[in-house]
Amino acid sequence: MFISKWKEALICLKAGRVTLPYPFVPRPTAEGFRGQPEVDGRRCIGCGECATVCPPRLITLVDDGDSRALKVDYSRCTYCARCADVCPEKAIRLGNNYELATSQKEDLTMTVNLKMANCSLCGKPFAPERLLRKTGEKLTGGEFGQEAPEWLSWCPECRKTKQAKALGGVEAKDHV
């Protein structure tokens, strides 16, 4: 029994002091740590991919007139990094901050506001300007040659009516 006690004491003394004087000295994080997601408002194009995959559904897109707001509620974040995985613009990365405790719930929210573009046909705002520009950039150089296709600046409804008309035309021709 005494040998056991002695061994136990030895283990303790050999270990020395291991705890950190936290919170007085910050505890560094590992490389690739998944902390608070940081959204880069200048890069975000408002595509909403992140909102689709976020498991606790804390990222929401709210369209209000000519602006689209990307709202993030950090209080429910699970630090899974799915948003960062799918973001086409790499506008989200998971940073090193893990000290989110606060007495003010508002501290844990964040909003990115994006300007909406107006439909070139009906004039309604329908998608963030940046999203259209990025899509245009991706498409140019591809099958559309240098110019962004015209329909990019049409809102979904207008596109649908246009399409229906075009299709209707084709069908009509077929029938003749």
Partner: peptide, 8 residues
Amino acid sequence: KAVVHSRQ
């Protein structure tokens, strides 16, 4: 106790 517990 703290010394034996390896803590601050």
